[in-house]
């Protein structure tokens, strides 16, 4: 590693976490640059976590204006009109996040995520997208994958009391510690496109039902030309119809996607704050792992449902899947 030392200020501030991940990891964190898009509750939780951890910089994207709705699971926005009037979500969040850790550069990037060229992404070590369409997820993931340097890519979504994280670290090498030995470990991640293209009938029987349910809703939004999250309980009949079609097409027994689960995901349009904290926490941890090269990263989906309380990792679309 390089020989740069942490400053006294950094050592004092980060003392407790350096005891968890070490000085090298802290140094790598301080040189990393993170891009997030879609400032909803879960992403806000994530931003708080990595600003506290001490990344080098954090760039926020979300040009939507602040509304009553956006306050619901967001602790960065005071419900005072003159604080957020005329400002975008990203701008209001930026002001508040800066305050959390003066050593992290927090800024806003305006514009539409999918309109940027590939080289825009070169600045970043990790890109996290939320509240975006299936097409945008695919597009950004592909742009990141085409760059020379490895850019970690994540998607995160919360609906009702459920959450999903997708991770693409491309070709990732890290030091895995087991007992007293350290083994060099290599992981090959599939792209988002590759992962969701896996035929459902070939997936393990006990795969998280949330995986299928999220894909059905995503496909529905795509087919209808809706924005991410722009669905409601009124869409249920048509979504159930789409589920049936997809299951037939993919040769999957319909019982793997309970109607009640889809109904829950449609009713609960607002994020459930405890779930935001949990998903934002897991995502924060994963980004820290990927940047520091310490700890086993999750591959490649994570699901949490507050109803059963399980936080499950699924590996979907890897070359070895189905073995």
């Amino acid at each position: 590693m390089d020989n740069e030392e942490l400053t006294e200020q950094e050592t004092a501030l980060y003392d407790r976490q350096i005891r968890v991940w070490g000085v090298d990891a802290q140094r790598r964190l301080s040189k990393s640059h993170i891009l997030v898009s879609g400032m909803k509750g879960t992403v806000v939780e994530f931003c708080k976590n990595i600003v506290l951890a001490g990344v080098g910089s954090l760039t926020l994207m979300d040009d939507r204006m602040v509304t009553e709705d956006s306050l619901s699971a967001n602790f960065l926005i005071p419900p005072v009109d003159d604080v957020f009037r005329g400002k975008s979500l990203a701008e209001v969040c930026c002001d508040a996040l800066r305050d959390f850790n003066p050593m992290v550069q927090v800024s806003v990037q305006k514009g539409d995520l999918s309109s940027f060229d590939g080289d825009f992404y070169d600045k970043f070590s990790a890109v996290v997208v939320s509240c975006c369409s299936l097409a945008t997820k695919r597009l950004i993931n592909e742009k990141c994958r085409k760059r020379q340097k490895r850019i970690a890519f994540y998607t995160v979504d919360c609906r009702d009391s459920c959450g999903e994280i997708f991770v693409d670290l491309q070709n990732y090498t890290y030091a895995q510690k087991r007992l007293d030995e350290t083994i060099e470990c290599q992981l090959q991640y599939p792209s988002f496109e590759e992962a969701v293209a896996v035929r459902w009938s070939t997936l393990p029987r006990r795969l998280s039902k949330l995986y299928f349910a999220m894909r059905v809703i995503e496909n529905f939004e795509e087919a209808e030309g809706r924005k991410a999250g722009e669905t409601s309980i009124a869409d249920l009949p048509r979504i159930l119809k789409l589920k049936k079609e997809l299951c037939e097409e993919q040769s999957l027994n319909e019982s793997h996607i309970p109607d009640a689960l889809l109904e829950r995901l449609l009713i609960g349009t607002k994020e459930h704050p405890p779930v935001c904290a949990i998903i934002g926490g897991i995502l924060g941890q994963e980004v820290i792992k990927a940047i520091s090269g310490k700890g086993d990263p999750l591959k490649n989906f994570f699901f949490f449902d507050a109803l059963d309380g399980k936080g499950i990792i699924e590996d979907i679309g890897s070359i070895s899947t189905g073995n």
């Binding site: 407790r16 704050p273 904290a277 949990i278 926490g281």
Partner: peptide
């Protein structure tokens, strides 16, 4: 007797407490 501590775990645990 300093303990390891990171924000993420505390956030996750707090979420679980509320649930």
């Amino acid at each position: 007797n300093i303990v390891h501590a990171v924000a993420t775990t505390n956030a996750i645990i707090a979420g679980l407490i509320v649930i």
